[in-house]
Design a protein around this nucleic acid. Structure first.
Lengths: 214, 214
DNA sequence: TAGATTGTTAATCGATTAACAATC
DNA sequence: TAGATTGTTAATCGATTAACAATC
């Protein structure tokens, strides 16, 4: 395990971008890539690419840059997509449904294996290939499927209960779309994605730009 | 304009969280709040709250902390929600529709005033109160409505064209869900939200936690 | 060789945290 | 007063960038 340099969230984000980009490059048949080319495609600097790859222990050559298939393999393994990862989605509203749709044909090692909702109308069927269950059976289904991650798209009021049940059933990573600060044990990783916050940020900086224009 | 301290993306994100939280607190009728209470509700430290509020030039009292309605007013103004901000959405797929739904009853000063799609089946109607147009008229509609922000939920291949048209029509802020690095003039603010990247990040750290558990 | 790129260290930058006098 | 909180500065921490010898 490469524990010398701390692997931050930011580095993982970039590695994920590299991976997606490298997949495309690989499909196009390009065998090699230079740090500055990969950097440009991912919106980062060449120095960052070199340092990140150094951090995961991958080396290139000063003559041909980095070997694309080899690097892709390395990054994929580093991110843990050598083996399948299972996740579940809770809350089959509009956003939940959009995410179910989104997963069709994405990273084949990230498997959305079940979805849950309180509303009886939305469950006991298959949406975009994913079986939907009532939340009442969530705990047992998650444990049985050994899902490691949960995506929470339920209303604010239900989010904490959902999170607690998921964690009890063995989930160690949560992607939370509800605007609440979830209380979870320290070993559980939580990423909050509050669309309102993101939009307000864009609104602020859009306003700043518009002001400067004048 | 408070230009002494640079206002970073991170500060704006926190201010947005404070604002949402303060709205709720205000509705509940609480008149005052201490930095550590607001901090806990927003998942940050008390020192950060104090420093952020100092940055926007707001003062509290050491006896009663911060005045809730006054602070709410100040943060709202600082973020530019004193006046209405108009935005448009391009790409009425599942994700686009989820966002259209999302906007019902959110921040009333962030107005989603139009949506666009190439698919004729999806346009010339009203979804969740938002009128949907064909992309062919996007430029003129955006300019006419003086929209400042654009949300891009079209496929990767179409994103750059959409972005260029929006920018030409006066948009200065973009929220981009497509996994491409958009090329825009430097005065335009772009926030990329790649759901795959976010999920792969959660997957990585979920895996790390699971490993530690053993 | 000449020129470009990598690997890696040192310097810079910015953000967070600690600390504490001033205030109520 | 005694105790808690604010406003603000200094210290710490971490991430990015600059720089350059080693390599091809």
């Amino acid at each position: 395990m490469p524990d010398k340099t701390k692997i931050s969230k930011r580095i993982i984000e970039r590695l994920s971008e590299y991976r997606t980009t490298l997949e495309e490059i690989d499909i196009h048949g390009n065998r090699n890539i230079y740090s500055h080319d990969l950097a440009k495609l991912c919106g980062v600097t060449a120095a960052q690419v070199r340092r990140d790859l150094m951090n995961i222990g991958f080396s290139g050559s000063s003559a041909r840059g980095y070997d694309v298939p080899e690097l892709l393999q390395n990054v994929t393994n580093f991110l843990g997509f050598g083996e399948e990862r299972r996740m579940v989605l809770v809350g089959i509203g509009h956003l939940g449904r959009a995410l179910l749709d989104f997963f069709v044909d994405r990273n084949p090692k990230l498997v959305l294996c079940a979805a849950f909702d309180v509303n009886e109308m939305r469950v006991n069927r298959v949406i975009h290939g994913v079986r939907c269950y009532p939340v009442s059976v969530m705990g047992e289904v998650v444990a049985e499927m050994q899902a490691q991650m949960g995506i929470i798209t339920v209303p604010e009021s239900a989010a904490q209960d959902v999170a607690s049940t998921l964690v009890e059933s063995g989930v160690t990573g949560l992607l939370n779309f509800a605007p609440v600060q979830l209380r979870v044990p320290s070993h559980v990783f939580v990423e909050n994605l509050n669309i309102s916050t993101v939009l307000e940020k864009v609104a602020y900086f859009a306003g700043q730009s518009a002001e400067k224009e004048r």
